[in-house]
């Protein structure tokens, strides 16, 4: 058994059991899923450009921001019929948010396929004050809400889309350092 709370990331392969395919990515640098060719997914790409118009290009929808893409995705999934496979690629934070939108729309295991994230920036929720700290690169972060230095636990909540961050009292850090020196 895989005992992990991480999102189930795996290299993207077009799933032949699906009858329609939608691929969302937070940058055009993300490659298409393996197996694209005869069957092509619909492609939605974030370009971070305020002049771009959605539906401007054949076969690809360009979106101005991740937020714009996710809002459009929520609307699309609310009307979608059975048989769709949703593929996501991009940064860890983007993939977390795609999973939340897909879960809310009632998609299940097998309908959402996520590529291994392209960055290590994680969202971290402070267990002490509930503040979401975005784009955390290191194993620690100073919480934007309560100022606690949070240690990021390898424990991810799919519902919150974030890792758990827990502070470590100063006296414990000192004691453990002292123990390590003498031990």
């Amino acid at each position: 058994m895989i005992v992990s709370s991480q999102l189930p990331f795996a290299p993207l392969v077009l799933d032949a059991s699906g009858v329609r395919h939608l691929y969302v990515r937070d940058t055009a640098d993300c490659p298409l899923p393996d197996g694209c060719g005869a069957v092509m997914p619909e492609i939605w790409t974030v370009v971070s450009d305020a002049t771009v118009m959605a539906d401007a290009r054949e076969g690809e929808v360009l979106l101005r921001s991740v937020t714009a893409l996710l809002e459009r995705l929520a609307g699309r999934l609310a009307r979608e019929r059975v048989g769709l496979r949703l593929y996501g690629a991009g940064g860890a934070s983007f993939l977390s948010r795609v999973a939340i939108v897909a879960d809310a729309a009632g998609l299940a295991t097998g309908e959402v396929l996520l590529a291994p994230p392209r960055d290590t920036a994680r969202r971290v929720v402070c267990v002490h004050c509930d503040t979401l700290n975005d784009g955390v690169q290191a194993d620690t972060v100073r919480c934007l809400g309560c100022g606690t230095t949070l240690f990021v636990r390898e424990h991810y909540s799919r519902g919150l889309g974030a890792y758990m961050g827990v502070g470590e009292p100063e006296i414990l850090l000192q004691a453990m350092e002292a123990a390590a020196r003498h031990g």
């Binding site: 059991s17 009858v19 059975v82 496979r85 299940a108 295991t109 309908e111």
Partner: peptide, 10 residues
């Protein structure tokens, strides 16, 4: 169900 793309979880 398989032909229409229903996933096992559903």
């Amino acid at each position: 169900a398989a032909q229409l793309g229903f996933v096992a979880a559903k």
